[in-house]
Computed example of a mutant assay.
Amino acid sequence: MNEQQVERLCQIAPKYGLTLEHRGLIITKINEAETSFDTAAYMPDQFVDLLAKIIATRMKADLWQWQA
């Protein structure tokens, strides 16, 4: 990914329930959780798929906690 794509991703992420912060090509926060994903190592579609997996994992955890 390039820096323009990372910036755009950070702008649109809230539409999908995520807040992202970045410094250059590094995603530094996902929903206030500190992280250090180097987006240069990903194609844009790959990184979106990774974010989708994060959302799915959180949804599954919420579902199982609700039933407990």
Rank of each mutant, 00 (worst) to 15 (best):
R8G: 04
G17V: 09
Y42W: 13
R58G: 04
Y42M: 08
A52K: 15
T28D: 11
A33S: 12
A33L: 12
Y42E: 09
E21R: 07
Y42I: 05
V6H: 07
Q5A: 01
L51I: 02
L50E: 11
Q5G: 02
K53S: 15
L20G: 06
L9R: 07
L9P: 10
L63P: 00
Q65C: 08
F47A: 04
M1A: 03
R23M: 11
T28E: 10
Q65L: 13
K15P: 09
F47E: 06
S36N: 14
E21W: 06
Q67R: 08
T57L: 12
E34T: 14
Y16W: 13
Q4E: 14
N31C: 00
I55P: 06
L51Y: 07
A13H: 04
R58K: 11
K53W: 07
R58Y: 03
V6R: 07
L9K: 02
A68W: 09
L51F: 02
D45M: 00
I54C: 04
L9T: 07
Q65H: 07
L20W: 03
L50C: 11
P14L: 10
A13R: 05
L18G: 10
L63K: 03
D45K: 01
T35C: 12
G24A: 10
K53I: 12
I30M: 09
V48G: 05
H22I: 09
T57P: 01
I12L: 11
E3D: 03
D49S: 14
L9Y: 04
Y16A: 08
M59E: 15
M1T: 05
A33V: 15
I27G: 02
A13L: 03
E3L: 07
L63V: 03
K53L: 15
D49G: 10
P14M: 09
A52V: 09
G17P: 05
E34L: 14
I27W: 08
A40K: 15
R58H: 08
M43R: 06
L51S: 05
V48Q: 08
K29V: 09
W64F: 12
